[in-house]
Structure formats: structure tokens, C-alpha cells
């Protein structure tokens, strides 16, 4: 029986799996999700996506277990301890959204040392023995400015809302934005605040800096901060600039209202929180023995003026526009990387 499953799995690898996943070679494998933070809508959606996809996978017998663990506090030391605990709990693979690209390398190396597959995504780790499903955050920041260059050919003043200080995602998106501005000198960044990817923080920060700023033509953001920025501009009685959105439900709803009322135009870009499910399938493929390159790239989820209604319909209230990835998607991503 075991050899039959083995043969089926081997055949499956060669011709890709059928639509209904057969009990794979990974049926007795246990996968854990190590997550460092759950305090915003993106992370909540990420955890829900994981739950939806993996509970189905467990029910189908693809893997034995796929448990999610979140640290109580978003700290490197907490997550390193958590990973070491997961090693002790005997998981076969750890899917990881890391608090720091470097700080967890010691723990990750411990995991690799006992033969555990480590797949990091979104917040990836630099330890060479781990797999990385990275987001090109620099390109994401640059895309925002490129869009603005199209929208406002004569250029103008930009307000930059950054994320959580000291987190590399913040640095990466910001450096992309600055790169874009350097290539499009018609734009100047006249102000920069930290919005911590949260609407209330962004609103306060923008309200605080607005009185000191000249006219702002556009706001470049990192997601989770566009709605707060819009509210701050409204409260200050300033004309609403072009605010780049980050796929959050409140942002898309506000955009839709403005679009219907005044024909307001912008764009929205972020990473689908379902990327956790992509990481799950990649881990499953690695456990199954597939050849997977160490570095994979996730596509952005971008919503434009014409796809707004569609995107909004697919986003649950309080959530983020999302895509749940399937085994086929994972195999496509793996194939394109090879």
C-alpha cells in the first residue's frame, strides 16, 4: 500500500496532481505556521486564509496537521523561542512569517539541523537553509510613483506615509518610493510620517504634519494607512489628494464612495494575505520531495479604477482584498522560478 502511494505521488509529481488531491506522500507530515504578529487586518486575513486552506488539506488527508502559532508579542526573541518550541513539538515543516530577516537565523539553523523544512514568506529570513517566498516590496513602492507619474504628468508634492519604524518591509517600500521619485524628478517628497500600517495612527500622524505642509498632490502609502490619511485631509479642510490605497476594505469602500460621488481616481496595491497558503503548498511540495528553488517571488495584488467593484466585492468587511492559493498556483510559482 505504501509503495502504491509512493508510486502515485511520484506519478503526480511528474504530471502534476489531479483536481482532487489524492492522499499524498505527505499524509503523515505535520506543518506549523509561526507568525509574529496578528494585530492588523492583513495578518488576521492571513491567519483566516491559512485556516481555510489548511483545514481542507487536513480533511483531504494531504497533511496530518497544519497548526498556526502566533507569538503573544511581536518580538524577535519571542519568535525565536517559539520556533525552538515548534522543533521540540516535532513538526516536519515550519512555515514562517518572520519578525526579523536576520534575528531568527539561529533558531532557523537549529530547525534545519534536525531536518525540518523551513519556508519563510512575507517577512523572509536570510538563513540559506530556509526557503523564501519574498515580495518585491521595493518594486511595490516604485510602482506607486510610476502610477502617479502617469496620473500627474506635471508632477507635484508627495506626502509619504511609512510603516513601522525599524521593520525592513518599511525600509524596502520606502526605498522603492524614493527610487521612483529620483527617476521622476517632477515629484518632491515634502513630508514623511510613520503610520504603522494602521488607520488611526496614520490619521493622527498626517493630521499632525499637515499644517506645516504646502499643497499635497498625492500621498504614497504602504497599505492600511490610506483611509486614515483621507480622514485627516478632510478634517483639515484640505482638498483630497491622490491617495494610493492598500487593498483594505475601509480604503476600498472610501474609494468607491469618492468614485461614485466625484469620479475620484487612484490605485490600490498590496500583497494578498493568502500568501500564507502559497507558503503552505510550497512546504507541502518540498516535503513531497519536489525540487524547489530557495527563492520564490509572490505576485502583487493590484486593484485599478476599473477593477475596484470586483475587488471590493471579494473583500470582507474589516479585511483585505485576498486570493487563496491552490496547489496548482504553488506549482506554477515553483515552475516559473526554475
Amino acid at each position: 500500500m505504501k509503495s502504491m502511494i509512493f508510486a502515485a505521488a511520484a506519478a503526480g509529481m511528474a504530471v502534476s496532481f489531479a483536481a482532487t488531491p489524492a492522499p499524498a506522500d505527505t499524509a503523515d507530515k505535520r506543518i506549523a505556521l509561526s507568525n509574529n504578529y496578528a494585530g492588523n487586518s492583513w495578518r488576521q486575513a492571513m491567519l483566516r486564509s491559512w485556516e481555510t486552506v489548511t483545514s481542507q488539506a487536513v480533511a483531504d488527508g494531504v497533511v496530518a496537521a497544519a497548526d498556526a502559532f502566533t507569538t503573544a508579542e511581536n518580538q524577535v526573541t519571542e519568535q525565536a523561542a517559539q520556533i525552538q518550541n515548534l522543533i521540540l513539538q516535532g513538526y516536519d515543516a515550519i512555515v514562517l512569517n518572520a519578525a526579523s530577516p536576520e534575528g531568527l537565523n539561529g533558531a532557523v539553523r537549529e530547525a534545519c539541523g534536525v531536518g525540518i523544512t523551513v519556508v519563510s514568506f512575507d517577512g523572509v529570513v536570510s538563513e540559506p537553509c530556509a526557503w523564501r517566498i519574498a515580495v518585491d516590496f521595493v518594486q511595490m513602492g516604485k510602482d506607486e510613483v510610476l502610477y502617479l507619474a502617469e496620473r500627474l504628468p506635471e508632477g507635484g508634492n508627495l506626502l509619504e506615509i511609512r510603516g513601522l519604524a525599524g521593520v525592513f518591509v518599511d525600509d524596502a517600500i520606502s526605498s522603492g518610493i524614493h527610487e521612483g521619485v529620483a527617476e521622476n524628478p517632477q515629484f518632491q517628497i515634502v513630508g514623511s510620517v510613520h503610520g504603522d500600517w494602521a488607520q488611526d495612527v496614520a490619521q493622527k500622524a498626517v493630521a499632525g504634519i499637515l499644517p506645516s505642509l504646502p499643497e499635497v498632490h498625492a500621498v504614497v502609502t504602504q497599505g492600511g494607512d490610506g483611509y486614515g490619511a483621507a480622514q485627516a485631509f478632510k478634517a483639515a479642510g484640505r482638498p483630497t489628494p491622490v491617495i494610493i490605497m492598500g487593498n483594505r476594505h475601509d480604503e476600498l469602500t472610501w474609494w468607491k464612495e469618492q468614485k461614485d460621488a466625484t469620479g475620484y481616481e487612484t490605485m490600490s496595491v498590496s500583497i494578498a494575505p493568502g500568501v500564507s497558503t502559497l507558503a503552505f503548498w510550497v512546504a507541502q511540495q518540498i516535503l513531497d520531495g519536489a525540487e524547489v528553488p530557495k527563492d520564490l517571488v509572490v505576485p502583487f495584488l493590484r486593484i485599478d479604477q476599473d477593477t475596484l467593484e470586483e475587488g471590493l466585492a471579494d473583500t470582507e468587511p474589516g479585511g483585505v482584498a485576498n486570493v487563496l492559493y491552490s496547489l496548482d498556483d504553488a506549482q506554477t510559482v515553483i515552475a516559473t522560478a526554475q
Binding site: 518580538q75 524577535v76 526573541t77 525565536a80 539561529g106 533558531a107 539553523r109 525599524g166
Partner: peptide
């Protein structure tokens, strides 16, 4: 000791301490 364990550092690494 912390860096010896984590292999690299982060400006926020020990705030919880």
C-alpha cells in the same frame, strides 16, 4: 549572548527585556 544565539542583530531585538 543574544547575538551568539541569533547570529545577527536587530535594533529592536531585546526591547522586551
Amino acid at each position: 549572548a543574544l547575538v551568539g544565539l541569533t547570529t545577527s542583530a536587530d535594533a529592536n531585538i531585546a526591547l522586551r527585556y
